[in-house]
């Protein structure tokens, strides 16, 4: 990785963190539980890394197995996280 490429990644990290702080600070306390389960689902983004790790040929390498484990876990996180968040938000009603 060139130092320019690294600097760009660090820029993204820092700016996205600031954006995250700004966005989350505005979420009302009522929604904190769905916010957590929803962000849980987003942290399942590591599924992208898991997919790439699974792209190894053959089952002889530990890399492949670790990738598959990661893929199952990340999928649980993504699918389960979004589903349960939707289930919760559906219940928030104003009468």
């Amino acid at each position: 990785m060139s130092s320019e490429a690294l600097i760009i990644l660090i820029y993204i990290l820092v700016l996205a963190s600031f954006l995250g702080f700004e966005l989350i600070a505005k979420v009302p306390p009522t929604l904190h539980t769905p916010l957590m389960s929803g962000s849980n689902a987003i942290s399942g983004i590591t599924i992208v890394g898991a997919l790439l790790a699974c792209n190894e040929m053959g089952y002889t390498t530990i890399s492949k197995w670790l990738g598959m484990v990661a893929l199952v876990l990340a999928t649980i996180n993504v699918v389960g996280g979004y589903t349960v968040t939707d289930r919760m938000l559906k219940m928030f009603k104003k009468k």
Binding site: I12, L13, A16, S17, L19, M36, S39, S43
Partner: peptide
């Protein structure tokens, strides 16, 4: 990049 963006959003949250 997408891992970094999503990861830092969750981290900040």
């Amino acid at each position: 990049n997408v891992l970094i963006v999503a990861g830092s959003l969750v981290g900040a949250s």
